[in-house]
Write a protein that binds this DNA or RNA. Sequence first.
RNA 1: GCCCCGUUCGUCUAGUGGCCUAGGACGCUGGCCUUUCACGCCGGUAGCACGGGUUCGAAUCCCGUACGGGGUACCA
Length: 556
Amino acid sequence: MLSRDEIDALFPADLPEVEYWEQHYPPRELADGAEVTRLGPSPTGFIHIGGIYAAMIDVDRSRRTDGVYVLRIEDTDRAREVEGAIEQFERAFAYFGVSPDEDDVRPGGYGPYAQSARERIYHSYARELMRRGRAYPCFATSEQLQEQTKVQQAQGVPSGYWGKWAMWRDASDDDVREQLAAGTPWVVRFRAPDDAIGSRARFVDEIRGPLEHDANRNDTVILKSSATSPRLPTYHFAHVVDDHLMRITLVIRGEEWISSVPVHLQLFEALELPQVRYAHIAPLMKQIPGGKRKLSKRKDPEASVDFYVGEGFPAPAMLHYLRGLANSRLADMPLERALAEPILLDECGVAGPLVDLAKLRDISGDHIATLTGEQIAAELRTWALRFDESLVAVLDDNRELLLQALAIERDGVDNPRKDLRTWSEFREVYGYFFDELFTPVDGPADERLAPIGLEPDAIRTFAEAFRAAYQPLADSAEWFDQLRAVAAEHGFAGSVKEFKQNRDQFVGSIREASQIVRVALTGSTRSPDLGQVAAVLGADRVLARLDAVVGSRTTA
RNA sequence: GCCCCGUUCGUCUAGUGGCCUAGGACGCUGGCCUUUCACGCCGGUAGCACGGGUUCGAAUCCCGUACGGGGUACCA
């Protein structure tokens, strides 16, 4: 082992001792039971919906216990960094109400909160480990390591840097000095405990209970190689140092980390630091032919938070859905209560759930149905500002019309319609109220009229007659009576039942007649009560749209 | 290869040895309500991965197998 002076010479002379950091980041003064949680995203592109899922649980645990939720940017892999990723995080977290209590824009005394800015801290601890003989420099090249892995695989022994394969673990001081003097690039490796091989690591996971794993035998890298600053730590080392110094109590992270817990435990022990507690959550999955897999950033648009925000799923609906995934107890509650109730770790599922957009849409529709027209107008506008610029102008120019349209079967009704599930659906579901967003049908043969199942001639005839007799009656029942009257005159049965009993005697039933008018006015076979729609539209629009069905032969 | 985590209706799940001829929700679907579209209401559909144990009794406990996910990186 190198002398203390030789080890210290590998680091800047003014590098603080670990005691300095311990005092600089003292234990937090929080009540008993307060949880300090953290999320450590890498700025490698868009934020994954799983990140929001984890953040939501972090926020819940910390707020419930009067603790703190910290956001730490894990940017130790500079090669994968993407420009603007941090701003994107900020926006996504704000949208879902899971902004951190502490990060670089809301410093809390435990920063900096980006790992790339914490280099000196890691170095202090790495040097300390080296002084204690618990870490050492390694000069192996990646070619050497790859070659060794091949040999290990051929021999059927576990691959890795351990036992006799750990070539620099017990190298002579002279060999080390020689490499250092020659300027060979080096990394710092942790010296796994000598008794690790063959022993087991045991720990308790807050979600899964007692877990057991082979103890780590690898001398894992803790400081990566780099000729110039920054010489960054690996995840394992950064996790231990940061989570200790930030005084994190509860680490909630993906289950892919379970296999790494043994090395983390060894690191805490070697540094003589108290352990954090762990909760490993199941990953969000996606259905694929023949099975399911983890939602992939690259392949699945619905893995991205942008997808949900862009589609216009309201944040409360998303949160309700995500909470239900975490604790199924919450899925069955009304939204407001589901958001207020705590997320319990021991109730979290252990198998990765599939993200079910049909279910999300259902929840979203339920939520929007509880909003007032004013609220919908406001939310919709906020969404459109970002994703549908041209819609904003239409909404602003027709505010009264918009509110009237939204009021149909919503205001003062026991069970509002659930026709709007996302903001992006607005154009499709309510667009026909606005001339700017509506394309009138193109004659009786327009394909939008096809689902009714009548001949174009019959459609034209009825539309023409209805148009001729049209009265803009305000009362919805009276309004519909005139439709019934015209329908009866033109051979439509008064009820579906009547029509079914004597098909040959009728052109269709009141249903078909109504649908002709519905498609004429709205372009769709689905819409709220026709009388109310017509009242909001106004007589001029109604007549013009009926004319459009009749077609060029009798343009009004 | 080795190690770890998992596996209840299509999906999310309840279920911790008898309350389970397995409950709820979404989806799909039949009907009712209705002058039209919906909403709502009532009903239906469909599941304990497989094989051995333990037990008077197992979805629940044990063992094995299969399948899925993850780890075995100077990625996180």
